[in-house]
Write a protein that binds this DNA or RNA. Structure first.
Length: 829
RNA sequence: GCGAAAGUGGCGGAAUCGGUAGACGCGCGGGCCUUAGGAGCCCGUGGGGCAACCCGUGGGGGUUCGAAUCCCCCCUUUCGCACCA
């Protein structure tokens, strides 16, 4: 039925809907079944000649099910995958579930159901929802991190890193909730209190923990960022997280000969270092404390230890601290300076000790004021000198030069930094060093729901790795897996599991009872996907060589630091062990935006989570997909509101009608348009160009707008097959079920996903007639339709002849004419 | 405080190698069709003015024939980090 004459003759039921009206539910059910039957989304992994690994961040299968934010993320990635498939690549689009971790465990405890029972239910629900969205996922390669067939290899990865010397055990501070009797992650500590016990203060405890020494790779992780094809925002976040800082380590000696090493980025200010501050946990503190000062020092250290890690860092920043009673010699001035301890110095950064320069550091200034310590100016800006008093710390003085620094006075401070460092180094009292903010990765969790760390402790042999052939170390089925009062992992209660013979000497030994961090599960899952059906290897060499590194990875910036950094680290480590042929796992990464609701991030606690099911049911997956993509720029996200979704539905209805009309026309009629209705053909080429470029660059909202414009134009003309078929292919990544049905309506028997993405002729993709803007003195005074490529003289003549323009140019001669081809003529009088 | 991104109609947003501001969609107004219409179709829709025109891209300066776009200052929002020495 032709558009414009769509009124039905029948009455009563749906009087205005033609009999063949678009019925999303029917169409989507039909194609989901067909895809399944035909294996449309199966990828021939070994046989592919132009592989494209299209990765999206696998979800944590929460009990609530999929939410709109997930759908937004997956659909945007799916569009890339489908687009590249239509462009002729063999696209592998796998998906899986990241189901270990404290969230699952806590939720299981809350509802009183074992996670081993809960998780499969959640996964089943998720999988159904995901299928309903129309993703091009090859489910044959699904992975589940909680499956022993998967975590066997997670444990294997641990053993490889252990072998490489990148896994070490050391004591470290953790957040401890006295009520939960367990450790908490930093994000579970809210304002110093436990998230589950708002009236219980969290403390810190020292525990033995396994660490991956990611800091050894800090510089490489940073260097590769410069050339990575990654979203700018993600690269910046990672670079900041690594936090490279160039400075020097300087040595202050005590009369007893103890060398206290401090890290500073401002060696130029060493003459102004009037005291030292050590972190309260610093190993030298006890030794340096005089008997007289010991009660105060001990008391202060105890108070700091009682504080949790979070409030220690973000809480009240009033400066506190105590004097140790000892002094050390400033290597530049030779004078003795007092040694203090204060909680504003952190043990985990630098050397855990600083030289305090109150004249040029705000924190030191504040502390010196409070403790009545001397403040000396050693850098002065223009017009100031060594005698100019300091009302506040002056950190970075433009054009500042050294003062009160015998031997260096008058030097610009940036130069002095280098000179002083070098001079002190020559005396063995310093060296230039680079420091990183990045910490080693603590992977130990004193919890139940995770892969056991595959290590055995033997009194004779010490720490023994579980032999690879004994993997996996299966997580025992514990009825009661709650953490108990001991502070020891729940696994320690599984007696029969815990006690094992030593793999080395056979004597009784004990298993490691900590499980590993979930971030380890997800740090290598992309390696597993192509080999998900293999039990003999973590990942197959040939397949990995063919499919990795990942061609395109799309995900949220909430994982910019931890997940992406850990994945890069594990990849580099495996590369260095000779187990991978590449150093970086993700060739291209794009961060999608966040979908917010009423201006706030969706979260259960806020109660503003939008469930996609109702929308899919009411509007269909295709309309919902397109609507989410049309909300705004994909890489920025946007506010979810359902006002406007009908616009997408109307658009699809129009395409449906166009398809019906075009199906009546003869095939291959493009030539006819070249002679006759050329404008539509030109517009088609332009549309193909816009949609191609926009889809490639994730500008989905404008790609959809371009298709809408084209459809509006087609409705005013005659929709032939040659004009409509390319549109259906353009639409396939966005509305896959719908496009399949349209493709079939047009008489094709195969999947539209096996069609070719339409090409465009750049010469045809521009209009023949263009509108020139005529300006007089920069103000728009008229418009003229002229043919493309009109020469300057012709255009100016036409402009000057225009009566509307004449009124402003007057009789005088133009002083100047600016001509922009095909766009504008500006006459200056 | 540091770092990054962004401020455009009633709303979501287009347009940033300087060159028609407001594409596309929602909403709104008018009309057609209709027993009816939250359906569909057509027209209109930044503000002011009868009009010629004038004013308009967070605010203020500047460069330019011409600025949403470039430069300087300020304000606001979002995100990341945060006593990092």
């Amino acid at each position: 039925m032709a558009p414009g004459r769509r009124k039905s003759l029948c009455f009563n039921t749906m009087p205005d809907r033609p009999n063949d009206a678009y019925d999303p539910q029917a169409v989507e059910r039909k194609w989901e079944r067909r895809w399944e039957e035909r294996g449309t989304h199966h990828t021939d992994l070994p046989g592919a000649t132009r592989p494209y690994f299209n990765l999206m961040m696998f979800p944590y299968p929460s009990a609530e099910g999929l939410h709109v934010g997930n759908v937004f993320a997956f659909v945007g990635a799916d569009i890339q995958g489908r687009y590249h498939r239509l462009k002729g690549r063999q696209v592998f689009e796998p998906l899986g579930f990241d189901a270990f971790g404290i969230h699952s465990e806590n939720f299981a405890i809350k509802v009183g159901t074992h996670p081993a029972e809960l998780i499969p239910r959640n996964i089943a629900r998720f999988r159904e929802q995901l299928k309903r969205i129309g993703l091009m996922v090859d489910w044959r390669y699904e992975v589940q991190t909680t499956d022993p067939r998967y975590y066997k290899w997670t444990q294997w990865i641990f053993l490889q890193l252990l072998r490489a010397g990148l896994a070490v055990k050391r004591r470290a501070a953790v957040n401890w909730c006295p009520a939960c009797k367990t450790v908490l992650a930093n994000e579970q500590v809210i304002g110093g209190y436990c998230e589950r016990h708002p009236d219980v203060k969290v403390e810190q405890r020292m525990l033995d923990q396994w660490f991956f020494t990611i800091t050894k790779y800090a510089q490489r992780l940073l260097d590769h960022l410069e050339t990575a094809d990654w979203s700018h925002s993600t690269r910046t976040i990672q670079a900041n997280w690594i936090g490279r800082s160039e400075g020097a380590e300087l040595v202050f000696e005590t009369p007893a000969g103890k060398r206290i090493t401090v890290f500073t980025t401002r060696a130029d200010t060493v003459f102004g270092a009037t005291y030292l501050v050590l972190a309260p946990e610093h190993p030298l503190v006890s030794e340096l404390t005089t008997n007289e000062r010991r009660p105060d020092v001990t008391d202060y250290r105890r108070r700091v230890a009682a504080m949790d890690l979070v409030s220690r860092k973000v809480g009240d920043k009033t400066k506190t601290g105590v004097f140790t009673g000892s002094y050390a010699r400033n290597p530049a001035t030779g004078k003795a300076v007092p040694i203090w301890i204060a909680d504003y110095v952190l043990m985990e950064y630098g050397t855990g000790a600083i030289m305090a320069v109150p004249g040029h550091d705000e924190r030191d200034f504040e502390f010196a004021r409070a403790m009545k310590l001397p403040i000396v100016r050693v850098v002065a800006g223009p017009g100031h000198d060594g005698g100019t008093p300091l009302a506040a710390a002056e950190p970075e003085i433009p054009d500042g030069r050294l003062v009160n620094s015998p031997g260096y006075d008058g030097l610009p401070w940036e130069d002095a930094k280098r000179r002083i460092t070098a001079d002190l180094a020559a005396k063995g009292l310093g060296k230039a060093v680079v420091n990183y903010r990045l910490h080693d990765w603590c992977i130990s969790r004193q919890r139940y729901w995770g892969p056991p760390i595959p290590v055995i402790y033997c009194d004779d042999c010490g720490t023994v790795p579980v032999p690879e052939q004994d993997l996996p170390v299966v997580l025992p089925a514990l009825e009661d897996f709650r953490p108990d009062d001991s502070g020891v992992s729940p696994l320690a209660r599984a007696e029969s599991w815990y006690r094992v013979p030593c793999p080395g000497c056979g004597k009784p030994a004990r298993r490691e009872t900590d499980v590993s961090d979930t971030f380890l599960d997800s740090a290598w899952y992309f390696l597993r996907y192509p080999s998900a059906d293999r039990d003999d290897v973590a990942y197959d060499g040939a397949l990995t060589g063919k499919w990795l590194p990942v061609t395109s990875y799309i995900g949220g910036n909430e994982h910019a630091v931890l997940h992406l950094m850990y994945s890069r680290f594990v990849t580099m480590a495996l590369h260095d062990l000779g187990l991978l042929g590449f150093e970086e796992p993700f060739t291209r990464f794009r961060a999608h935006g966040t979908i917010v609701k009423d201006g706030a991030k969706m979260s259960k606690s806020r109660g503003n989570v939008v469930n996609p099911d109702a929308y899919v049911e009411q509007w269909g997956a295709d309309t919902f997909r397109m609507y989410l993509m049309f909300l705004g720029p994909y890489q920025e996200g946007g506010d979810f509101r359902d006002a406007g979704i009908s616009g997408i539905r109307r658009f699809l209805d129009k395409v449906w009608l166009l398809t019906g009309a075009a199906a009546q026309t003869a095939p291959g009629a493009e030539q006819a348009h070249r002679d006759g209705a050329g404008d539509l053909l030109r517009m088609m080429h332009r549309t193909v160009q816009r949609v191609t470029e926009d889809t490639e660059s994730l500008a989905y909202n404008t790609a959809i707008a371009a298709m809408m414009e084209y459809v509006n134009a087609l409705r005013d003309g005659a929709p032939t097959r040659a004009l409509v078929e390319p549109l259906v292919v353009l639409l396939a990544p966005y509305a896959p079920h719908f496009a399949e049905e349209c493709w079939e309506r047009l008489g094709h028997t195969g999947s539209v996903m096996d069609a070719a993405w339409p090409g465009f002729d750049p010469a045809l993709a521009v209009a023949e007639q263009v509108e020139f803007v005529i300006q007089v003195n920069g103000k728009v005074r008229g418009r003229l339709r002229l043919s493309r490529g009109t020469a300057q003289e012709t255009a100016v003549q036409a402009a000057l002849a225009d009566p509307g323009v004449r009124r402003f140019t007057g009789e005088g001669k133009p002083r100047k004419v600016i001509f922009v081809p095909d766009r504008l003529v500006n006459i200056v009088v």
